[in-house]
Design a protein around this nucleic acid. Structure first.
Length: 725
DNA sequence: AGTCATTCCTTTTTT
DNA sequence: AGGAATGACT
């Protein structure tokens, strides 16, 4: 089989690169996944490397799955056995295997962001710190940063009292995690690095095994991940990394694109290969992307080129507010689907913050159009799902107090705060975890522990403990779905959650969805099922089958591509986000974020901003994104929006004006009033949307798609068109 | 013990 | 505007 046909010269070089460190700098759409998969196939089929000796690391399960499937397409069964997964999943696997050398058990649970915050809150409480002054969320972020930098509590730099407090919380938080036999996301990396640091024999075992280490999205690695890779590749030093500094958008998570430079320092004999040809987008889209990213200082300029032709210019659309943005998106999609045989699934709508999805969703619902929302948190964060997962977790790891507390209250079973406190207190005295004590009470009706609890609370505790005990026994030979069914039945969760209201029905539907997910992985152990749930990424929830537009954050869009891309909310304060204003590094990252969004588009690109934007429920005038100024006029299909000058607050109302108003109030020369996407009203043909408009012979010629009568061409001076907000 | 009201906080982005 | 944590009330 020829693994090189269809690849360009640079791609071929990358695939057949010799031993040693290899660095692939891959622009967007340059076929890096192809290079990675073909490289793996090449190593196996041409270099005689056993799949067992190959490790490929990605950031999302989806990316891992795609690679796995593509390698399997190339090689069939011969590809079986490659270690392929996300950083976090691979670390979890190692930690379970090596748990004997670690301060926790192999059946640890992985806490999600919610649980982590709860634990930080508890730590702050335990230390008698004022949560107003030491905000748990901030401390949690600081702890996460420290962990990503491989800093233990006693290594955290201390400059002031706040740092001191954070250090103490960090310390306490870690011991709480261990009490619960739980790890947070960062721990997975941190403990693995320390394991490999401190146990040379373990390190050597893995380093010898992995003759070849391949890494996707290398620019997103943080210090912990970088160090981990270094350890894993320390014996054979065949490390093949693919990345693009311009697409580095996870700085806040500790990612450091400078790892690309560090790589060349750490591995002086690195072979470096540039992939610049783009196979995804039209030149017009690439030009817009380059116009944006070229404003970032200190980067190696790249010339992205394509053979896909010039294509259509990007459209900039100015909407009244975020609802009008959504209206524009929906109208444009409707028209393009109606007119041009573009599938609904060809569209993606991207935004900076999750909160922006709400308005879009409402608009889609109101228009009765299906859509796909990307985001795992949306599902797994729901109360009913968290409830049930906490039961499963508790069965798997009775030391998990966070889950115990949740499960014991859902549904209510006569165990209140007081009883729970008693349970905790006494558990501590007999050095058990509350869960373990509960199991003892539930399984042994003559237990000596009984006498420490009285009457009603004892009965309630025994009852719940009994349930827990039975589930523990059942889990031996039940699969996750059967266990879930049993729990649902035992606690009569249906009648608890579904009160007959719409919301209740909805919640029960979600429970059934969870059940379906469990059924999908029938042959998985409870442990792996829970791990899979803890480590789902937003991207993993991208649905490929449903033919509907995709709604997703710019972050979640990385690695994906769509024929038509809308980027909405292109306002200062949203993109770039206001939290980035005072830090040049962060502003550069905001710019990269826009770059990532633009380069997702294959054929058409719509850049949408609003004159007014809601913040905390209040609608306020907003400025177009400063990034829009960096797009030269000739790259755009319509005229460039102007940022209004800095205004005194009392003049802010000017920003509400439509372009047509500004015109009337002064300028003599004719300006284009209508832009693609605008909704207009015609005295006879009623409502329609502008598809195209141009100036001609002292008039404006506008193509409009009317809902009632279809496509019409009119002269603006005669048609008496009203622009609709 | 459990329900209801009030307050306060949130909004970056995610494994 | 909406959700969560806290606290008063039944």
């Amino acid at each position: 089989m020829d693994l090189l046909t269809g690849l360009n010269l640079q791609q071929q070089q990358a695939v057949i690169a010799g031993l040693g460190p290899v660095l692939i700098l891959a622009g967007p759409g340059s076929g890096k996944t192809r290079v990675l998969t073909h490289r793996i196939a090449y190593l196996i089929s041409h270099m005689g490397v056993s799949p067992y000796h190959i490790l490929a690391v990605t950031f999302t399960n989806k990316a891992a799955r795609v690679m796995e499937n593509r390698v399997a397409e190339l090689l069939g069964d011969a590809s079986r056995g490659v270690t392929l997964g996300t950083f976090h999943a691979i670390c979890a696997r190692i930690l379970r295997r090596e748990a004997d050398a670690l301060p926790f058990n192999a059946n640890f649970v992985i806490y999600d962001a919610d649980d982590q915050l709860k634990l930080v809150r508890q730590a702050v409480n335990d230390l008698d710190l004022d949560p107003k002054q030491h905000q748990p969320a901030r401390i949690h972020a600081a702890i996460s940063n420290a962990k990503n930098e491989l800093l233990l509590p006693d290594q955290v730099p201390i400059n002031n009292y706040r740092d001191e407090a954070m250090r103490r919380v960090y310390q306490r938080y870690q011991s709480l995690l261990l009490d619960n036999n739980g790890l947070d996301f960062d721990d997975l990396l941190l403990y693995t690095v320390f394991l490999l640091d401190n146990h040379p024999s373990v390190r050597e075992k893995y380093a010898r095994r992995y003759e070849h280490v391949l890494v996707d999205e290398f620019q997103d690695t943080n210090l912990a991940q970088y160090t981990l890779l270094k350890h894993l590749a320390s014996f054979h030093r065949n490390i093949f990394v693919v990345g693009d500094a311009d697409q580095s958008i996870y700085r806040w998570r500790g990612a450091d694109y400078r790892n690309v430079l560090r790589f060349e320092d750490d591995y002086p004999q690195t072979q470096k290969i540039l992939l610049e040809q783009n196979y995804r987008s039209t030149q017009a889209i690439l030009d817009a992307a380059m116009a944006i990213i070229d404003h970032n200082p200190q980067r190696t300029p790249k010339r992205l080129f394509t053979e896909r032709g010039q294509g259509q210019k990007a459209v900039v659309f100015e909407a009244f507010d975020d609802r009008a943005e959504a209206g524009f998106v929906i109208d444009t999609i409707s028209v393009l689907v109606a007119r041009q045989q573009l599938q609904p699934g060809a569209f993606a709508v991207m935004y900076r913050t999750n909160a922006q999805s709400r308005v879009l969703e409402e608009a889609f619902l109101k228009a009765n159009l299906p859509y796909k929302l990307v985001g795992a948190q949306r599902f797994y964060g729901r109360r009913e799902i968290k409830d049930l997962i906490s039961y499963l977790r508790l069965v798997h790891n009775p030391r998990d107090e966070i889950s115990l507390e949740r499960a014991i209250h859902a549904p209510k079973r006569g165990i209140g705060d007081k009883t729970l406190l008693e349970l905790r207190r006494h558990a501590k005295q007999v050095s058990l975890s509350p869960g373990e004590l509960l199991l003892e009470l539930g399984s042994n009706s003559t237990s000596a522990q009984r006498e420490y609890f009285k009457g009603r609370s004892l009965t309630a505790l025994e009852q719940f403990g009994g349930l827990l005990y039975r589930w523990q026994i059942l889990k031996q030979d039940y699969n996750p779905q059967d266990l879930l069914d049993r729990i649902l039945d035992d606690i009569d969760y249906h009648s608890y959650i579904d009160d007959g209201s719409d919301e209740g029905r909805d919640r029960w539907d979600n429970v059934m969805e969870l059940r379906r997910l469990a059924a999908e992985r029938k042959d998985q152990s409870l442990e792996l099922f829970l791990e899979g749930i803890a480590l789902v990424s937003d991207q993993d929830t991208v649905e490929e089958n449903a033919n509907a537009p995709t709604l997703l954050t710019l972050h979640a869009a990385k690695g994906l591509e769509f024929p038509v891309v809308f980027i909405v909310g292109l306002n200062d304060g949203t993109l770039p986000h206001s939290r980035s204003f005072d830090d040049p590094e962060e502003m550069q990252e905001e710019r990269r974020l826009l770059y990532v969004g633009i380069t997702r588009a294959e054929e058409r690109l719509y850049l949408v901003f609003a004159q007014n934007r809601a913040a905390y429920g209040m609608n306020e005038p907003a400025q177009p994104s400063r990034f829009l100024e960096d797009l030269p006029q000739d790259l755009l299909a319509n005229s460039q929006p102007k940022r209004s000058q800095k205004q005194a607050p009392e003049h802010k109302a000017a920003a509400f004006r439509w372009p047509s108003d500004t015109q009337r109030s002064g300028k003599s020369e004719l300006q284009q009033k209508f832009h693609p996407g605008m909704r207009v009203n015609h005295p006879i043909w009623n409502e329609g949307m502008v598809l195209n408009s141009r100036l001609q012979d002292d008039d404006e010629i506008v193509d409009i798609f009317f809902e009632d009568v279809g496509l019409k061409r009119v002269a603006a001076s005669l048609a008496n068109l009203q622009i609709k907000p």
